[in-house]
Amino acid sequence: MSLFWRVFLLNAAVLTAATALLVLSPATVSTPVLPAEGLILVAGLAAMLVANAVLLRIGFLPLRRLTRAMTTADLLRPGARPPVSGHGGIADLIKAFNAMLDRLEIERATSNARALSAQEEERRRIARELHDEVGQSLTAVLLELRRVADEAPESVSTALHQVQETTRDSLDEIRRIARRLRPGVLEELGLASALKSLTGEVHGVAVRCRIDGELPALGEEVELVIYRVAQESITNAVRHANATRIELGVRVDPSEVRLRVRDNGKGIGSAPEGAGIRGMRERALLAGAVLAVEDAPGGGTDVKLDVPIRGGSRR
């Protein structure tokens, strides 16, 4: 039955009941209307309106649930669906909305996978150029400075040695940037070594890394998701949360791998999620993982990533 006919029949039932009550009751209406008769009419009208409102509220209750689902739907937090209830058009409307969410989540996951794959490829390209071109050019400059400094007078040699140190520091920084863009350790030694290397590159903040259990073969994309979420969490803690202590932990359960990154910074509070956290959520969707970013007890931020173990093999 369509929504139109449901509303029509509800109103018709109320009006029919009111008419039957008026016909069967001993109440009469005079001209002009007496005060007692007026009270009876007002009471009947009020009863009819209340009954109509109650019946319509019950009938439209599934639509209210659907409205709440529409206003709270978030494709970065998939899975929530309003229950299919009601009759006729209302149930069909809820089914259509759920089917639309299914399509949108699939399309978003597909587009995110393509976008993140292109992003990673661009990271690798930039990292190669930094290492192969800029790095080699700076190395050549460093060698030439050393040769000139050895042949230059002492007054000039001192200044050239200072330029050498500056160039060497720049070369080291370029190599660090290249490693962050393209985690070669992840490709060569695996996720556990990459996470330990990641925490070892943080300066000025006490970072502890603990991995409980032997990590299973998760596959290239899933390992990259875990690494990037850990990397973004540490970066946010250092740059934005003013943290002085970070704890990174990985625990292997029979059905999933749990990543935890906790810091003692200022936390996230009620601030809206930035691009970094949204990026982590999009990456988590690629691995079918569940991501939670919340204020940690006692202050700071607690990032939790639960990745299901679906099998896989290393390259």
Rank of each mutant, 00 (worst) to 15 (best):
A118C: 10
D295S: 00
G44Y: 12
R176A: 01
S313G: 09
A241Y: 07
P32R: 11
P35K: 15
V33Y: 09
V229E: 00
A47L: 15
E165T: 08
E282N: 04
A12G: 09
T16C: 12
P82Y: 12
A271K: 02
L215R: 03
S137V: 14
G274E: 09
D150E: 14
R168N: 07
I226Q: 01
R123N: 03
G79C: 12
A140G: 10
E223N: 05
E165D: 12
A118Q: 08
S270E: 15
I58L: 14
I226E: 04
D295V: 04
R128A: 11
E221T: 10
I94A: 09
P308F: 07
P32M: 10
T166N: 14
D263G: 04
R68M: 12
N242Y: 14
G265F: 08
G265T: 11
V261W: 00
E223C: 04
S170E: 13
I246Q: 03
H87G: 08
Q231H: 05
E221D: 10
A206P: 01
L39Y: 09
L34R: 15
D212Q: 11
V290P: 03
D212G: 03
D212N: 02
L286I: 02
L224Y: 10
T199E: 05
Q231W: 06
V222L: 06
L39C: 08
L10C: 02
P216I: 14
P308T: 03
P78F: 05
D253L: 13
S155N: 11
T31A: 14
I246N: 06
E232G: 03
P62C: 02
T235A: 12
A96R: 03
R81H: 01
L160W: 02
T244C: 06
F4A: 13
F97Q: 08
S197R: 11
E173G: 07
P308Y: 04
G200F: 11
E214P: 06
T110Y: 04
